[in-house]
Design a protein around this nucleic acid. Structure first.
Lengths: 198, 198
DNA sequence: TGGTCGATGACACTAGGTGACATCACCGTA
DNA sequence: TACGGTGATGTCACCTAGTGTCATCGACCA
């Protein structure tokens, strides 16, 4: 669609640039305006100046368009675990990784809240969110095992860390919240330590 | 389909009994034989002697036919939490609830393993499983709050308990496993305590 | 006898998702 | 300069999950 666009160099480009970005923008806007399931893929594609078929070339399904950033999240988390001091306990490594995550998000609270609104409003999207978090937990557990943590401690620690992130993230994006994500995560971690101590 | 069946009283019944059960049986068998996504709803319905439309009257979607028992699971979990001694710590109440769950499953290891095989083979089904577990965790957190546990301790404890169940269940249904679910859960809980203690 | 109810069937329709093939600007190379 | 390959996109036909609506007909009741 729309061939013959003039690109930055003044040459005739066949396609408008950044099809993926345009699809994501269109999807976010439409989901936010009319809700996820009152928005069709054809509608998203049309708004992005593309076709349904092109949408499905970039995204495995309609939900996936909202989860583009999850690979980056996983990378930051795993890298931070791997980079923690060798002497750090599993839970200390986890604390360091949570701080690294917080830094990644701190600037994007408005966008995160918008995305969260869309997801919370739709069970299908919550399912996808949960499997992304489960995948994340599995990767984190792998990073812990690479540090010498045994099973099932690695999986339990990883799940605990991801749970802390999830719970804290949910509080962070609440309109009334004034605390930083880093602080909410540290509080949750302390709480978990207290619970486990009995 | 198949009207004119003779029922237990010798009278002519219009329909064969237990449509839900027949649909579940057909679905389990077909999913196990040919996989979840190579099985169509029309196929399941036909095998059960019913139509697609009837399938969707009983199950909200194709996946739901595998998750009929999750309400019972939640009831047992929540009841056990509520019934724990008033003096028990949150984690002790959790331990008691996990024992109660183990009792519920101990007799059904073969069936549980078959269901697990089907679910593990398909990401869509894992998504549904995860949201069921998340719903379970939310209910358990509610039961803990009813005991006076504050947030975020209640949610963190509930998530930890459900994680212990999930991890232990996965190990329990492994072909090589010889331990009971109760024992695997107790081991995981001890491990979690050790990790959190540092 | 007739009327309501409840479980199921029949049928048409929407939308997510896929496979196969066509299009055409771009780019490297002879 | 001509030409062939490549990659991003479009077109079209198709499958199947899931839904809305109305028809059917034995059971049950007055």
């Amino acid at each position: 669609m729309s061939p013959g666009v003039i690109d930055y160099a003044g040459r005739v480009a066949r396609w408008q640039p950044d099809a993926v970005g345009r699809l994501q923008d269109a999807a976010f806007t439409l989901f936010d305006e009319q809700g996820f399931d009152r928005t069709t893929v054809a509608e998203i594609a049309e708004r992005a100046g593309l076709t349904k078929r092109t949408f499905f070339r970039y995204f495995a399904d309609k939900r996936e368009v909202l989860f583009g950033g999850s690979k980056g999240l996983e990378d930051v988390f795993v890298t931070a675990i791997a980079g923690a001091p060798a002497a750090a306990s599993p839970l200390d490594a986890m604390a360091a990784a949570l701080d690294a995550l917080a830094e990644l998000f701190e600037e994007r609270r408005a966008g995160s809240a918008r995305r969260q609104r869309i997801i919370v409003a739709n069970p299908e999207l919550q399912e996808r969110e949960l499997i992304k978090l489960a995948t994340l937990a599995a990767a984190v557990a792998g990073a812990l095992r690479a540090r010498g943590v045994k099973e099932p401690a690695a999986t339990l620690t990883a799940e605990a860390g991801v749970t802390i992130f999830k719970v804290s993230f949910g509080r962070w994006v609440e309109p009334a919240n004034r605390k930083t994500l880093a602080r909410l995560q540290r509080e949750a971690l302390a709480e978990l330590r207290a619970v486990a101590a009995g």
